[in-house]
Design a protein around this nucleic acid. Structure first.
Lengths: 121, 121
DNA sequence: TTTGTTGGTAAGTAATAAATTACCAATGCG
DNA sequence: CGCATTGGTAATTTATTACTTACCAACAAA
């Protein structure tokens, strides 16, 4: 369990895996039960769970021959913490101001003329 | 810009793209300048930026022939909000309790015997 | 208009990742 | 022990995606 930020994002980037994660988060479950509801094979579920586990997003406990997977909140918290850095809109405003300053420095004359937003797509 | 959660996670799941995102977040920049620092081609940077834009994580403004990309905090906030749901450790505890209850329901006798954590990997 | 600069798009390739089937290990029960 | 249940691993195939080169569009300056 390295639990780097990239691992976490990559783990939740796949739709099927994210669905499995949400299901496990809602209520701990086993590989077999999960495979029954997600129309992917059991090995596929097992592999998805391993990716989630490596990302620190789920944890598992062996119970007899079965194995119960559950949410691991700490991995989620790590991702949340990573995003905090960018969420603060004040920081964004600061960065934008810094850019304006640099743009002015790059070209001696800051021709702030043809400036147009691009919102589509 | 659909900005679904999956798009955002997938966007930050790639290491190169995440590096570009962090660079843009720190200070708005253009495609050319970014391509100069990331030893990938200019089209690659352009494509990465499009993915980030579709995920609602960056926005761009045309300035003359150039185009300045900057952080879009709202996309980040959306991802943060998604994670909030799982971060709350109290929720996890609740889910775990619910599972214990269901496990007991599944098998009439709740043989809570061979129960072992798996931490490695 | 011509020329240079900046970037997005197209098309193709190479690498990665998600899925499958088949097999094996471990546990529990008769 | 023999047998069933559960799930992880191996090996392969398929699909996706990241990247490249080549080309084209928009704008600025001469």
């Amino acid at each position: 369990m390295k639990a780097t930020a990239t691992l976490g994002f990559a783990a939740l980037g796949d739709p099927t895996r994210r669905a499995i994660f949400e299901r496990v988060a809602r209520r701990p479950s086993t590989v077999g039960k999960l495979a029954a509801q997600f129309d992917v094979s059991r090995p596929a579920v097992s592999q998805h769970l391993r990716v989630l586990k490596d990302a620190g997003l789920v944890a598992d406990t062996a119970v007899g021959t079965s194995r119960i997977y559950r949410l691991e909140p700490r991995g989620v918290e790590a991702m949340r913490h990573y995003l905090d850095r960018f969420w603060d809109s004040a920081l964004a405003a600061f960065a934008q101001a810094a850019e304006a300053e640099q743009a002015a420095a790059d070209r001696a004359d800051a021709t702030a003329s043809a400036k147009q937003e691009d919102k589509k797509s």
